[in-house]
Write a protein that binds this DNA or RNA. Structure first.
Length: 460
RNA sequence: GUGGAUGUAGCUCAGUUGGUUAGAGCACUGGAUUGUGGUUCCAGGUGUCGUGGGUUCGAGUCCCAUCUUCCACCCCA
């Protein structure tokens, strides 16, 4: 048999050790912040029933769902006529009943409805798992990627929005990634659509103005025309797009503009309150009320969030919003929720490209024991055990290889300390401890090694 | 889903109008140095030229298909 060339499916990746350690650093930081705000962990299966997934992400989303072929004789019960119809969409529903999850929000909604009697509301959960999309891959766009979601469901208080903003602020502060947190409110957007006489075209309007940063004012105008907004409405919208002023001036400007729209006034009041909460929370990252922030997902109904890195352009690295009736499709209405999702893969890219990973992030072992043969092993093992008991990650080189080879191993793996155990050391009851970074080497009694290392490691 | 680029050693890339046995640097392995790494010097294998067809006396080079990666749409993390 010919040897086959190893490969993985399009848009998927292996995560080698160094990358894993860096990714884990991101995941642990994010998770640590979630926990500190009282969110609880949840995991759901990689695959869901296709009926749970279909129709939740629009036509585009349905196309991007990975479908899982039924097991066994998947053609059973399908008549010849159907098979020959060549209608892939219809046929796929018969031969595939499961699909890979497309995001974590819909499975979460499914979970909440399914377990509504066991859940205490407001329910605060976080979920860090991969999702799959049959998208065409590009840089920073994969077919398998991780999402870190935090949501609170069963409370419509704006304090939740404020808390999520604080979480975003803290995560990126801890990761040392300066960001801009952009906020807006779908009700404000709806109000704007209403007062410019395009209430019916709210969705078209938001999709177009969402692209402002990318295609500019002229581009947006062209897009608006293309999407069927009349010239009058566009003329009225322009001052909104062009508006520049302080936050308080912006609120006043909108207050006048949205006077005639009840929805708009409500949205504006929500924004005013949220910004007020945030002022009292001592945020360290930049927060802006951005009228041109729209976000595509249809189910958002209130506050919307989007976060971009200041030092590296890669699109949004975190986003979310309030959805008033996500669980309605599963038969549980009137439950409001709000949540955000962190894009770990993109955060990784930002941190890598802006040099935010320190050497320590990729370090696993602190001490390596170097020895030269079977005779030394009996002296090495108790010492290594003592270090591990002291909480120091310790390795013993498995082969009595040349010193150079063992040193090189420590070097390659970024191990900062090496303990040499040879005939001389054993004879004197001492060990040689070498700092691989400075090249400094000291000799000390074997019994004092653990204490000494603990002391100098604590100082680092 | 639409349109466009790309692929040569583990990595970054050379490779002439199609011509005989496909190259460099880095990395890797061994040695100089039987107990002191990162520097240096020497030696060494780096390979179905992405894959499958086709044109040709002859294809890494030209043509077609396919896959990969990347880019612009679409959408999004």
């Amino acid at each position: 048999m010919a040897t086959q060339r190893p490969s993985i499916p399009k848009g998927t990746r292996d995560f080698p050790p160094q990358e894993m350690m860096r990714r884990n650093h991101i995941f642990r930081t994010i998770e640590g912040v979630f926990v500190r705000y009282g969110y609880q962990p949840l995991e759901t299966p990689a695959m869901e029933n296709l009926s749970t997934l279909l129709g939740k992400y629009g036509e585009e989303g349905d196309r991007l769902l990975f479908r899982i072929l039924n097991s066994g004789d998947f053609l059973r019960g399908i008549d010849r006529e159907e098979l020959l119809s060549m209608d892939a969409r219809q046929l796929s529903l018969k031969i595939a009943e499961k699909g890979l999850r497309y995001d974590l929000t819909v499975p979460f909604a499914r979970f909440v409805v399914q377990h509504r009697n066991e859940i205490t509301f407001p329910f605060k959960r976080y979920q860090i798992q991969p999702v799959w999309r049959a998208d065409r891959p590009q840089k920073g766009r994969y077919r398998e990627f991780y999402q870190c979601d935090v949501d609170v469901i069963g409370s419509s208080s704006l304090l939740n929005e404020a808390e999520l903003t604080m979480i975003i602020d803290e995560v990126f502060t801890r990761l040392d990634v300066p960001v801009t947190i952009r906020l807006n409110n779908r009700k404000v957007l709806a109000g704007i659509a209403e007062v410019i006489g395009a209430g019916e075209k709210m969705r078209e309007m938001t999709v177009a103005i969402d692209k402002l940063a990318k295609i500019g004012k002229e581009g947006v105008v062209a897009e608006l025309q293309e999407r069927g907004l009349d010239g009058e409405s566009i003329d009225e919208l322009l001052p909104v797009l062009e508006y520049e002023g302080s936050e308080s001036e912006k609120l006043r400007f909108l207050h006048n503009l949205l006077d005639a729209s009840e929805t708009g006034r409500r949205g504006l009041e929500e924004m005013r309150q949220l910004l007020d909460h945030l002022r009292q929370s001592g945020l360290r990252q930049e927060v802006v009320f951005d009228l041109t922030l729209a976000r595509g997902l249809d189910y958002y109904t209130g506050t919307i969030f989007e976060v971009t890195a200041k030092e590296w352009e890669i699109g949004s690295i975190c986003g979310g919003g309030r959805y008033d009736d996500l669980t309605g499709i599963f038969g549980m209405s009137g439950v409001s929720g709000v949540g955000v999702s962190f894009g770990a893969d993109r955060i990784y890219d930002v941190m890598l490209n802006t040099g935010k990973f320190s050497e320590e992030t990729a370090r696993t072992t602190t001490v390596l024991f170097i020895h030269f043969g079977a005779g030394e092993i009996s002296h090495v093992l108790p010492l290594a055990a003592a270090l591990r008991r002291a909480g120091i990650a310790t390795e013993v080189y498995p082969d009595p290889a040349k010193l150079k080879k063992q040193m090189n191993y420590a070097n390659q793996k970024g191990i900062p300390y090496v303990v040499l155990m040879g005939e001389d050391e054993i004879a004197s009851g001492k060990v040689s401890l070498r700092n691989m970074q400075s090249g400094e080497q000291i000799s000390l009694p074997a019994g004092e090694l653990a204490e000494y290392l603990k002391k100098i490691l604590a100082k680092e």
